[in-house]
Design a protein around this nucleic acid. Structure first.
Ligand code: SF4
Ligand code: SF4
Lengths: 144, 144
DNA sequence: TTATTTTCAGATAAAATAGTCTTAAATATG
DNA sequence: CATATTTAAGACTATTTTATCTGAAAATAA
């Protein structure tokens, strides 16, 4: 069972780290992020390029360059990251992969699955980076 | 988001088909199953070999050979198939893949995830093939 | 016995995912 | 301007998952 791809996990962790720094619009080097989270710098760079293309983070080249959140953390929903990295249809996936499903009668596992899946999805839709960050600081939760 | 691997989906569908035939301990050709479900015969054979090794189905070679449920459908739980195919640790997977997790303090997504994951798992633990089969016949649900 | 049918076992191939590396482009500073 | 720094872009490699293929082993039937 894989809720998110590894790529997506890395993206979320990186952006949560950015959130935790909560500097006012100053760029953070990707190298700093990758070292802090123990991730491959090059791989993370690719992931963050994607998030930049989706206007979730801003990026800037050269010395003093780096990445930063494109908006305040309370305006970025976790589902946005998931959609950007794992694709919009990530939560459309079903349980038995029947050909041409969703139109006719459902498979016998649909009842169990559909509801649960929607609940998971809406949890991500209703969670902002700020919300998660609050939990991190209040609950002593960790990113690494 | 992938709840089950494709391999696992195929295995479940195949075994549900066996259940639907509910013949008294007579073997069904894998070829018949694969054609009915539109799956690759060779691939399905490998999946069913695995299920046979895990004592979920019985198999028999030669003409009149094939596979059949190892026990009555009401005594086979869906989680058994998942454990056999996707592995015992399938529902241990987490959301941020932190190194050495589960021991110390959790990551900020753990709260959302853990509960949901356990609910999904216990749904599979409390569902037998017979239960699903009942839904199929009563609800006009489909396997192909 | 001999031929046929079927699963078993393992090698191989293709596709998807994950990760690495190299070079180019933009920016800052002296 | 020249140079150092940093992200951008894309080719390349590695690993995992999914799928195919081949021949052996077991059971049956003629
Ligand atoms: S009925 Fe639902 S769970 Fe089943 S195959 Fe279709 S979409 Fe997937
Ligand atoms: S705290 Fe839970 S969800 Fe987060 S990384 Fe650990 S096991 Fe996974």
């Amino acid at each position: 069972m894989k809720l998110l791809s590894k790529t997506c996990m890395y993206g979320i962790r990186a952006v949560l780290y950015l959130t935790s720094l909560e500097q006012e619009k100053s760029y953070v080097h990707i190298r700093q992020i990758s070292e802090h989270l123990h991730l491959s710098f090059h791989f993370l760079t690719k992931i963050l390029q994607n998030l930049a293309a989706h206007n979730i983070i801003d990026s800037y080249r050269g010395p003093n360059g780096g990445v930063s959140l494109a908006r305040p953390a309370r305006k970025i929903k976790v589902i946005e990251l998931i959609n950007a990295i794992d694709g919009k249809d990530s939560f459309r996936g079903c349980i038995l992969a029947l050909p041409g499903c969703g139109e006719g009668t459902p498979c016998p596992l649909h009842a169990y699955w559909g509801e649960t899946r929607d609940r998971i999805k809406s949890a991500f839709e209703n969670t902002t980076l700020a919300k998660l960050e609050k939990q991190i600081t209040e609950g002593g939760l960790r990113l690494i």
